[in-house]
Every structure is written in C-alpha cells, then in structure tokens.
Amino acid sequence: MKKLLFLLFIIAGTVTAQNADSLFDSANNLYKNEKFEEAINEYKKIEALEVASSELYYNLGNAYYKLNKVGPSIYYYEKALNLNPLNEDVKNNLVFAKRLALDNIEELPKTVLQKFDANYLQKLSYNQWAVVVIGFSILGSLFFLLFYLTHGSVKKRFYFTTSIISFILLISSLFITYQQYNSYTKNKEAIIFAEETEVRNAPTFNSEKVFTLHEGTKVIVLDAVDDWKKIKLIDGKIGWMIGNELKTLNDF
C-alpha cells in the first residue's frame, strides 16, 4: 500500500511538472507576442499549481511592468528575489519598477552589523545558506575521514585542521541560516496594491490619518486586528491600514 501511494505521488508530481512546463512555454510565447494579459493568466495557472520559482515570478513581474501595473510588478520582482537574491536581472528590473512608485521613503541609517548583514549575509536566501551548511558538513566529514585513514603525521595534521575549520564554518553558516529564516518569518513584508491609501494611528475609520501611501510601496506587517494591518515603513513610521489594500510577500 505504501509503495502504491509513493508511486501515485511520483506520478502526480510528474504530471504537475509537465503541466507547469507546458503553461510556462505558452505564457512565454504570449509574452513575446505582447499579449501580456493573456501571458499573466497562463503564469497565474502555474502559480495556482503551487509551483514556485524565481523565473516564474520574474516573468510575472515583467508582464505587469509592461502593463504599467506598479504594485503587482514590484510584488512579483520582490518574490523572485526572495527565492534567488543573486538574480541580477530581477534586481535591475526592480529598480525600474520602483521608479514608477510615487512614494520616496528614505531608509533609517543602518549600524555596521546591519550593513554587513544587508551587503553580505542577505546575498543568499535561507535556503541557499542551508545548501552551504550541507556543503560544509560534507567537507568536514570527508576531511575527518581522511584524517582517520591517513598515517603520515603531516597529512593527518592537515586533514584534522581542515576538518575543524570546516566544522567551525558549518556551525557559523547554520547560525546564519537560522537567523535568515527567523528574520524572513518574522518580518512579513508586503506591497501596497491600492493606488492610494490612508494610514491611521489606530485600527478604526474614525481615527486620525497620519500619512498616505501609494501603490508599489513596500511595508513590514507588524500586527493584524480584524481587517486592519499594523505596518511599519523603512523610515520608522508606524500606522494602521485596511488589510486588503496590501499583499504580503511571505505568508506563514
């Protein structure tokens, strides 16, 4: 029975992958023919299959950008970067998309550690850091095995030292992976989809308006009350807005 279920899962996964590939090719052809709305519909069908990839989100961002839809284009570029922070094409297109957004919000100055984290550690996603962890674990185990099997004192010393360094790097990268994952799950980033929205100082319509945001602005969701979301901007401003006027990048 277990073998049968396993076989069914494999078949279902294969069929899904084939459907996704077929839809992706169809959507790409529509995009090339400048049928952007139709291309988006095809890409969305792939998204509905829960087949996530940086390439899919990148193409969705491009299609929305061609239609001058600021919010969705920035949203999908950001999702593509979440999966692959090293994708230079996404980074470049995101710069152009952000130029269409009306809000120009200056980020608060970062500490040395925050700059190091942003400039180096965040270059890889937590999934990519997990691959680094696996790599160092394999290297450490291999060098320790060579240390155990080798008889020459010089070689033993070299393999032992190298294995210790690998395990130290393993622990360090494991810590970074945990930190990156923890930051990703806690900082629920979102993109404003409403053309214009009023942010208030409390989750009620009769509360005071504190500032206004426009489509395409990225915010961090701190809390939720009924249909309201408590958000924070990169300049430190905090307020409440209607939840259906934004869309979160990382749902947990």
Rank of each mutant, 00 (worst) to 15 (best):
V132R: 10
N187V: 10
S137G: 07
Y184W: 13
N182A: 12
F147E: 04
L174A: 15
S166V: 05
F136W: 14
I134S: 05
K156H: 10
V133N: 13
F167D: 08
T162C: 02
L149M: 07
S153R: 08
T150K: 02
H151I: 13
L170T: 07
K188H: 07
I176Q: 08
S183P: 01
L170G: 03
V154M: 08
S125Q: 03
A190I: 06
K156M: 15
N182T: 10
F167E: 06
H151L: 15
R200G: 03
I176Y: 03
I171L: 12
Y181G: 11
Y181P: 04
T177H: 08
E208G: 00
Q128L: 02
Y126R: 08
T161D: 01
P203N: 03
Y148I: 13
Y178I: 15
Y184G: 00
S153T: 09
Y184F: 12
F158E: 02
L124M: 14
A202G: 10
A130C: 07
E196S: 14
K188T: 10
E189H: 13
F193N: 02
F167P: 03
F175T: 10
T185S: 09
Q128I: 02
F160C: 10
L142A: 14
W129P: 01
S163F: 01
Q179N: 10
T150E: 08
I134G: 06
S141H: 13
S153M: 01
L124S: 03
R157K: 11
T197Q: 12
L139T: 11
S153P: 15
H151G: 02
T197D: 06
L145G: 01
T161S: 11
T204F: 06
I138A: 15
F175H: 00
L169N: 08
Y159M: 12
T177P: 00
T185I: 11
S173T: 15
V133A: 03
Y178Q: 08
T150D: 05
I171H: 11
K156G: 03
Y181T: 08
K155R: 06
I164V: 15
V133F: 02
E195R: 09
I168D: 04
F158K: 07
S153G: 01
F136L: 11
I191G: 02
L169P: 00
G135E: 10
F205I: 13
F160M: 15
T204I: 08
G140N: 09
Y126N: 07
F205Y: 10
K155I: 09
S207L: 07
S172P: 00
E198L: 13
S207E: 09
A130Y: 13
F147V: 00
S207V: 03
F175L: 15
F167L: 06
Y126L: 04
K155W: 11
S173Y: 12
L139R: 05
Y181A: 10
F143P: 02
A194H: 05
S141K: 12
T162F: 04
I192R: 04
A194L: 06
K188S: 11
T204C: 03
A190H: 03
S137A: 15
S141V: 07
F147R: 03
F144E: 10
F144D: 02
L149V: 14
G152M: 07
V199Q: 09
V133T: 15
W129D: 05
T162E: 01
S125M: 04
A202D: 12
F167Q: 13
H151E: 06
I165E: 01
V132P: 01
F144A: 04
I138T: 04
